[in-house]
Amino acid sequence: MPQVTMTVNGRQVMREVEGRTLLVQFLREGLGLTGTHVGCDTSQCGACVVHVDGKAVKSCTMLAAEADGAEVTTIEGVTPADGGMNPVQKAFQDHHGLQCGFCTPGMVMTATALLAENPRPSPQEIRDALEGNICRCTGYHNIVKAILAASGQDVSALAAE
């Protein structure tokens, strides 16, 4: 079995994996990082989005072996070391950007990647960035609002619906 070494949330890990082990299985079952969710397992829903070398990817559609040598960040890794929440997570709470919360880890990871690339996105740019993240509670309006707020922009123009 191939051995992989990667840095996950700042910590170096080394494990043997099967060729077919998906990155999401490696994170959840191998490392116990169950904050990354498996929704559809067909790369449609985005619940499994993590960052690999700073880029958002669907960890259900990437082999763990392909992440050998990479820096991986999961939802557990975006939380400040002293606990609490990062600004995107806080904005999701403040603006009710979640209902059941299943899609939230993927939403937060996608939003964080968007804001790193585009610090002041328009509501349309936020919606475009979320194309691959599905929320079954249909909470998109408040998710967009939360991301807009996390970018430091005024959300009053987006009326509560």
Binding site: S43, G46, V49, V52, K55, A56, V57, K58, T61, M62, T110, A113, L114, A129, E131, G132, N133
Partner: peptide, 9 residues
């Protein structure tokens, strides 16, 4: 193509 995460891979 697809969505941002798909385009990154």
């Amino acid at each position: 193509i697809g969505d941002p995460a798909v385009r990154n891979r």
